[in-house]
Amino acid sequence: MRILVVEDDADAATAMVRGLTEAGHEAVHAVDGAFGLLEAQKGGYDVYVVDRMMPRLDGIGMVETLRKEGDQTPVLFLSALGEVEDRVTGLKAGADDYLVKPYAFSELIARVEALARRRETGSVATVLKVGDLEMNLISREVHRAGQEIDLQPREFQLLEFLMRHAGQSVTRTMLLEKVWEYHFDPQTNVIDVHISRLRAKIDKGFDRAMLQTVRGAGYRLEA
């Protein structure tokens, strides 16, 4: 995956480029919004990771310009501003996801990969398939190896999200944000418990567990 990192903090940028490279991606760094815009206009990127506050052209201005030019490449905003209204302005400007600084690196990678994936699959599919697991989004039925699995509405949403990001790590924060739409940090393991219930339903009685725990990151659904 080719990722453009637009970040004026040199240390943060170096760490990010290094981490992304180690995760098997190609990362290019631009030092501010103006350079970022020039680099982005060359094309060929799968995701832009853009710091919100930068000298010259800030992240909002850069993304707005790109969107006006018709560039639909997914954008992940990084910002030290974490209030609800900051998030809203960021998303309004055309960003697809918003990550508040400081963040865990696993969180950044997971979100970048999720954004790139979303672009690949699109959302027109009515049936999701991961290995022998099949989800019909219209009839809202789930089968594994032809066996029907009965899910609660929230479990269905959770599984849908995991299936759309199959093969990728998704963090607990991502699940809480994207499935429950909460932006806080629960002190108890509420998400883990939901996951283990879902796991009991889709993996119990099969030789291979699809829903795996990724240490220090979150979960991953494997085909």
Partner: peptide, 13 residues
């Protein structure tokens, strides 16, 4: 209702 749904499993666990 949402919160109850979120926390119920953890508590029953």
């Amino acid at each position: 209702v949402d919160m109850a749904e979120l926390y119920e499993p953890a508590s029953e666990d």
